[in-house]
């Protein structure tokens, strides 16, 4: 188990290196930041000096080596736009993103599981039909469109929620619901089909024969057997949440990492983009490992070696 975890962690580290190389190169292909940093009347000489100051004149491999040497010590360079250490900036935005992603994930799993499992137990009922329609819609509509519609209807027309920004709990609701919609639909569909596969099994009938209540039959004996695909999807969704915040945070002006990445890209603020992407990638890798390790708890037949 420990060996397995260490091995996976090693692979994860390699992925992280890969991601950092890609983002490093891609950012430098995106354009020259000095064009944005200098005033319009700056001379070519000014530009060359600034490039030297930022270290952009060195060959790419050397630049990368300098970046890695700093990164392993936690120094991801200075933000050219906000004039502060890039990592500090990213970590300051992290709580907002975790809050949004956390609520969106809880909503997605809660609503998805509840509706999926219930519609499996009431297969063919009106409720089941409604859930299936909802799932189709939830999977089909694009996130940015839903976000804009929500703002128009619930914030502008009805005035129930603020249109954007962060502050009260009310600020959190529209972006979290927008973000939860798609994964909730996917979770609902998966848990429905996983439960349909389980509910016909003899051990479910056996649970009834023992005198279990219908709720215990479904939620204990049934769901526990459908747990592996459900947990897999939940893990993927949790990991994706952090990346998904980019769109939602931009629409709702939510001051999290996603919005920071977008702003930094437009400002060609290399250090901030690199720091933020590294944090997102590391979170993704760790969450995936955590999900794989929980399989062992969910299925007694899985042994790690």
């Amino acid at each position: 188990m420990l060996r397995y975890a260490l091995k996976r962690l090693g692979v994860g580290l390699l992925c992280l290196v890969g991601v950092s190389v890609i983002i490093f190169v891609a950012m430098r292909l995106a354009g020259d930041p000095t064009l944005l940093l200098l005033p319009d009347d700056a001379t070519e000489q000014d530009r060359i000096e600034l490039r030297q100051e930022l270290g952009l004149d060195k060959p790419l491999p050397v630049q990368y080596a300098i970046f890695v040497a700093g990164a392993v010590q936690g120094d991801f360079g200075m933000s050219t736009r906000w004039k502060m250490p890039a990592m500090e900036l990213v970590l300051a935005r992290l709580p907002a993103t975790l809050q949004l992603a956390g609520l969106a994930f809880s909503l997605a799993v809660g609503i998805g599981l509840l509706s999926g499992v219930t519609s499996a137990t009431a297969r063919g009922s009106v409720f089941d039909q409604c859930v299936r329609l909802g799932v189709t819609l939830g999977l089909a509509v694009p996130v940015f469109w839903v976000g804009l519609i929500f703002i128009m209807v619930f914030a502008v027309d009805l005035g129930w929620f603020p249109t954007s920004g962060r502050g009260s709990f009310a600020h959190l609701i529209l972006p979290a619901v927008t973000m939860a919609l798609n994964p909730a639909a996917a979770m609902s569909r998966l848990s429905r089909s996983a439960m349909l596969g389980v509910l016909g099994a003899d051990y479910i009938k056996m649970a009834r024969v023992k005198g279990n209540s219908e709720a215990r039959v479904v939620w204990k004996h049934g769901l526990r057997n459908a747990a592996i695909p459900v947990a897999t999807l939940a893990g993927i969704q949790l990991a994706n949440m952090i990346g998904n915040t980019v769109v939602v945070e931009t629409i709702f002006a939510w001051p999290g990492i996603g919005k920071l990445i977008i702003d930094a890209i437009f400002a060609r603020d290399f250090a901030v983009v690199q720091a933020a992407i590294c944090v997102v990638a590391a979170a993704y890798i760790i969450l995936n490992l955590a999900v794989d390790l929980t399989y062992g708890l969910l299925d007694p037949q899985i042994r790690y070696d």
Binding site: D202, Y203, A207, H221, P300
Partner: peptide, 10 residues
């Protein structure tokens, strides 16, 4: 069927 009437995960 004894092979499938016990719950595999308990």
């Amino acid at each position: 069927d004894p092979l499938i009437s016990l719950n595999p995960v308990f």
